[in-house]
Amino acid sequence: MTGNQFTEGGTNMTKVSFKVTVNGRAREATVPPRMLLSDFIRQELSLPGTHVGCEHGVCGSCNVIVDGQAVRSCLMFAVQVEGSEITTVEGLTQGDALHPIQQAFWEEHGLQCGFCTPGMLATAQELLAQNPDPTDDEIREAISGNLCRCTGYEFIISAIRSAAVKLRETDTETTPQPV
C-alpha cells in the first residue's frame, strides 16, 4: 500500500492506493480513506447496480459479496478491500444470461421497484452457498437484514426457495453423482 500527500477539503490527507478484484476483473485505485465502499463501487468503478438506501447499515440495499460474505458496503471504507474479491450484482449475471437466483426472482415476481433487489440477491447468494436447501424460516431470517418496501417479502421468499431448487439441480447436472 502506498500513500501520496494531497489536500482535499482543506484537510491534509493521504490518499491510499490499493488493488482489488471486482467481478473477476483486477482493479487498481487511489482514493481518500474516507470514501465508502458503496461510493467506490458506484462512482469510481462505475458499477451503479449497488444501491445506497440508508448509509447507516440498516436497509441492506448496498450489500455486496466481499470474499464470499455479504457485507454492507456503506459500512466499509474502500481502502479496506485491498486484496479482496468482490462480487456485485453486475458480476452475478453470467454473460448474456441471468444467474439462476436472478431468474428465480424474475419468475416469482420477487421485485417491484427493484431498488433493494441487488442487496437481496447478494444476501440470497450467500445464504444458498451456505445452505443449499433452506426452510422458509431460514430464508426469512437471512433476508431480515434487507428492507423491501414494495413486496411484503412473500415473493422474495418464493424466489429464493425456487432459486435453491434451480441451484441444486444445476449442481446435480454438473457434479458426478455416486451410483
Binding site: M1, T14, P33
Partner: peptide, 10 residues
C-alpha cells in the same frame, strides 16, 4: 451522509 476526513493506518 458522508464521514468527515481522517487519516488511515492499517
Amino acid at each position: 451522509m458522508k464521514p468527515s476526513a481522517f487519516s488511515y493506518e492499517c
